[in-house]
Amino acid sequence: MSTIRLDHVSRWYRNVVAVNDVSMTLGPGVTGLLGPNGAGKSTLIAMMSGFLAPSAGTVTLDGDPLWRNQEIYRKVGLVPEREALFDYLTGLRFVLVNAELQGLPDPGAAAQRAIAMVEMADAQDRAIATYSKGMRQRIKMAASLVHDPSVLLLDEPFNGMDPRQRMHLMQLLRTMGAEGRTVLFSSHILEEVEQVARQVEVMVAGRHAASGDFGAIRRLMTDRPNRFVLRSADDRKLAGVLLTDPSVRGVRLRAEGGIELEASDFGRFSEVLPRLARDHGVRLLEVSPTDESLESVFSYLVAR
């Protein structure tokens, strides 16, 4: 059982702040590090991996500093985002190299065990250069698991995977978490995090925007005001009807046609809209959200 602790951690590159005063504690189980691209997730993981010094604050693993401390790698397994591997090696040799560098007593057995765990035994004798993206990800996982680490850090592990590979990796991460390992993975996709992680840490623009179990984060995100553009057979009539419902905060008729609408309760609004339209005989032609981008969801969280 291992715990990574970040205490008022900042990291800046000259005058650009990548991570701004982040404090969090990561314990056993799967934690998702969620945030849009450029939010500082990779910088945070680099600091947790001992690959980057914090400009301010401390990052520790079970009380020991991670920076300039190669002993931590006996406990930490790392799956970097970058694709580069030793392409000229076979999958087996690559995992074996990692086992040897870890100084394991029986590198061969450890390599075979790790390869079996990621179900890559059939392809282990092929050169990595011939692997698909998903296979590369799995052999990277095997290499990071070869010394049975108590901490597993994965930077955007689902990038470029097909749905089947994604499912398989999700299952693997759940198993790792259930075994009591401290697993952290980063992602910019809400649904990925939701399916694997119990605990979610949200990063936006270098700041730690939210933290909690997935239900709490999900509620924070869906409770925010949502904006839509509607087009219907009778915009004026529909606007009047919708304004009578408490889930709607405001409507505006657009000069070019259609209605701009702000809903304060997304769940209720999505039920009420089709019913009211039908009851009042107004045909709905189009309903489109105007700010559904992840960035707007995240910036709402930051503004709270």
């Binding site: 690959f51 190669q70 931590i72 790698y73 930490v76 790392l78 970058r82 580069a84 290499a143």
Partner: peptide
């Protein structure tokens, strides 16, 4: 250049 040195550096070996 390609970042694969991470696999060497993430090991308990003297630099």
């Amino acid at each position: 250049d390609d970042g694969s040195i991470a696999y060497l550096l993430s090991k308990p070996i003297s630099r």
